[in-house]
Structures are given as C-alpha cells and as structure tokens.
Amino acid sequence: MTTVIIRTMTRILTPAILVFGSYIILHGHLTPGGGFQGGAVFASGLALLIIAFSRKRVKEMFEKVPLSVFESIGALGFLGIGLMGIVMYTFLRNFIANSGAPFGMPTPEGINPGFLNTGGTLPYLNIFVGLKVLAGLTSIVLILFLILRREENE
C-alpha cells in the first residue's frame, strides 16, 4: 500500500522518535515536557509505524504488546502513589523528595545543571502518566487502522 520510500524512512526515523519520547518522559522533572508530552511523542512514533506497514506486519508487531495492561498499570500506579501520599500527609504528597530513596536526593538551591536523581515522586508519576498516554493514544490509532485493512481484505 505504502511506497518503499515511506517504509525506509520509517525504519530510520522511528527509533529516533521513540528515544526522544522516552527522554522527554524520563527527564520530565528537569527539562520542559513531562508524562503527557513524552507519551504523545512516543505514540506518534508508533502511529508512524502503524501507518507505514501492511496490516499483517502491524498485527504481528502489536499482537504481543499488551496496551490495555499498560494503560491499567499507568492509572493504578498514579493512584497508588497518590494513596501512599495519604499515609504520609495528603493525597499526592511528594513523600520521596529529600528522603534518599531512588529519585529522592535533594536538589541544590538556585541555578544548577540539573541532576537526574532528584524530584521525589515526580519521575514516578511522569513514567506512569507517560505509559498511560502512549497506550491510550496508540490503541486509538491501532483500532482505526485495523478496521480499515479488514474491510479492504474482504
């Protein structure tokens, strides 16, 4: 259906887009962006993959990927971290900040280059929201695509 040019460019571009999306999600507490933006970039890379290839290839690529499980993990992880905050003080309290746990180192005051091991609950929430957004948006594109090719085959 699509041309060789599109497929080749997709093979080259998709890894770069996916790495950039993961970078935006993981560095959400240091650089502009965050869970939603990174998830949207990641999902647009997967949408490029879906559009470029044939129905058979897409099916065997996405058959093993449990998108609904990712979506559920995102929502339940967000809620779980919020409820763990209730134990400490309030809903969604940043209880990991300055405690020494992973992502819990204190950040220096003022202008600094930015350290990845800071942020408290923010990186965890970024990862969960990013997982949720990429699973949701990808599943919308995927179901639209699967309808299209099914009717062409008949």
């Binding site: 965050g34 900040a97 819990g104 800071t118």
Partner: peptide, 8 residues
Amino acid sequence: ASANNVVT
C-alpha cells in the same frame, strides 16, 4: 519538590 522544572 526537589525538582528543577517548576511547571512539572
């Protein structure tokens, strides 16, 4: 919040 990005 010990994060540089105030928006996040």
